[in-house]
């Protein structure tokens, strides 16, 4: 198996740096060979850019892939959107000789050439398939006895014909990675529903996107969980800062903490919340940390 290069994307380094740090800390602690990917750009995002122009989308994605090819490393993504773009672009390069030629005609202008000889991974499927829940459990220093609503997000698993991670109606791999930390993955209605942000809807029609988010959050609240865990910073933003937007828009208050998987994994591996970008000055996060602290004491 090749080593990995960490593809950051946009939202994680530029809006949620805590998730970047949490990822690096977890990978280092688990002794996973993962380097930086200097000079990478936006993946580019599937919603807006693939909608507009497939050539630009494929060319820019291919440049990001080339950077990792040149290091002879597989790409590791920590965002469902980046995974969707880079995995789909990589498949296109590997399967469609004509598309590869066209892209290389553009890449030649910057002195690069895409070969299609590496894989694109997402941290959730990577940890599940290469390590598995049992081995993840063996790394846990601080079991987290809490109730978690898992949010897979759409592009981690769909379209299923391209992802190859099984059926999208009732997947279990992400839930098993939660159970591995000593937590309970709580089932809830519309668990596989979209957060509402994708496809360029959030950027152009924020209110409409938030109505979908509100519906999902209401179902999660009924399930009486301690937090939501996701695998994508775009879902993360929609479900987390979306709670503030919804409060302003409709007056509905949720107060549900939202964590990226690398943050909850980081807590279980023994890192303090501050190192993982979990803002404990926010009341809902502080309560979650108090709950976890009370478990250590008891």
């Amino acid at each position: 198996m090749k080593g990995l290069s960490l593809f950051l994307g946009c939202l994680i380094p530029n809006r949620y740096p805590g998730i970047e740090l949490a990822t690096k800390l977890c990978l280092a602690k688990m002794d996973i060979d993962c380097s930086d990917l200097p000079g990478a750009s936006c993946c580019p995002a599937p919603g807006v850019f693939l909608s507009f122009d497939k050539t630009s989308w494929l060319t820019l994605a291919s440049r990001n892939i080339v950077l990792s090819e040149e290091m002879d490393r597989d790409v590791l993504t920590i965002c469902n959107g980046c995974f969707s773009t880079l995995a789909d672009a990589n498949h296109t390069i590997q399967k469609d000789e004509k598309a590869k030629e066209d892209v290389n005609a553009h890449l030649k202008k910057i002195g690069r050439e895409v070969k299609g000889n590496i894989d694109v991974r997402h941290i959730i499927e990577y940890l599940y398939q290469e390590y598995g829940p049992e081995m993840i459990s063996s790394f846990v220093e601080r079991p987290l006895d809490i109730r978690i609503a898992v949010h897979y997000g759409c592009h981690l698993i769909k379209p299923t014909k391209d992802r190859g991670l099984g059926n999208s109606e009732r997947p279990v791999f992400f839930d098993e990675l939660i159970t591995a930390l000593g937590s309970t993955s709580v089932d809830y209605p519309d668990k596989m529903a979209c957060c509402g942000a994708g496809g360029g809807v959030r950027s152009a029609m924020k209110e409409k996107s938030l109505r979908m988010t509100e519906a999902k959050l209401a179902k999660i609240q009924e399930a009486n969980v301690d937090c939501i865990v996701n695998s994508c910073p775009f879902c993360h933003m929609q479900l987390d800062s979306g709670q503030d937007d919804i409060k302003e828009l409709t007056g509905t208050e949720f107060e549900i903490p939202v964590l990226h998987y690398t943050q909850i994994l980081g807590l279980a591996l023994g890192f303090p919340a501050e190192m993982l970008g979990i803002d404990t000055s926010v009341e809902k996060n502080r309560k979650l940390m108090e709950l976890l602290d009370s478990q250590v004491e008891s």
Partner: peptide, 10 residues
Amino acid sequence: WMCTTCYNCQ
């Protein structure tokens, strides 16, 4: 432009 590209329909 209201489709979030969630792929449920597909």
